[in-house]
Amino acid sequence: GIQEIVAMSPELDTYSITKRVKEVLTDNNLGQRLFGESILGLTQGSVSDLLSRPKPWHKLSLKGREPFVRMQLWLNDPHNVEKLRDMKK
Rank of each mutant, 00 (worst) to 15 (best):
S38V: 12
V69P: 01
L12A: 03
P78L: 04
I39L: 02
L62Y: 06
K55Q: 10
K63W: 01
E66Q: 06
S48G: 14
K89P: 06
D86W: 08
L12S: 02
S38I: 11
L51S: 02
A7M: 12
A7F: 05
L60S: 02
V6G: 09
M87C: 13
Y15N: 14
R33Y: 06
R70L: 09
W57A: 00
S61W: 03
L34D: 15
L51F: 15
K19E: 12
L30F: 09
R33K: 15
D13I: 00
S46Q: 15
L75D: 00
F68W: 07
L34S: 07
K63G: 09
M71A: 03
F35W: 06
V47D: 05
V6S: 11
D13T: 01
V81Y: 04
A7D: 11
Y15A: 10
E4W: 04
D77Y: 03
R70H: 05
T18P: 00
N28R: 03
N28F: 14
L62F: 12
L60V: 01
R20N: 08
R85K: 13
W57Y: 04
H58R: 08
F35I: 00
N76C: 09
R65P: 02
W57E: 02
P67D: 10
I17M: 03
F35A: 00
R33S: 13
K55D: 12
W57S: 01
D13G: 01
R33H: 12
P10N: 07
D49K: 07
D77M: 04
R85F: 10
S16F: 14
D27P: 03
N80H: 09
E82I: 11
L84D: 00
W57R: 01
T26A: 15
V69W: 07
L84R: 02
K59Q: 11
V81F: 04
M8V: 13
L42Y: 06
L50P: 00
Q44N: 13
W57H: 02
P10Q: 12
I39N: 01
E11Q: 09
L62N: 14
R33L: 10
K83F: 07
K63P: 06
D86S: 13
V81D: 00
L30S: 01
V69F: 05
M87Y: 13
R85E: 07
E11R: 06
R85S: 10
G64S: 08
V69A: 04
N76K: 15
L73H: 13
L62I: 15
L60T: 00
R85T: 14
G1H: 06
M8W: 08
V69H: 05
D49T: 09
F35S: 01
D77R: 03
G45K: 13
S61R: 02
H58A: 14
F35Q: 00
K63E: 12
K63L: 07
V21C: 05
R33T: 12
E11N: 07
Q32L: 14
D86R: 10
K55C: 15
N28V: 01
L30M: 07
M87P: 11
P67C: 07
H58P: 11
E82V: 11
L84S: 02
S9Q: 09
V81M: 04
F68L: 00
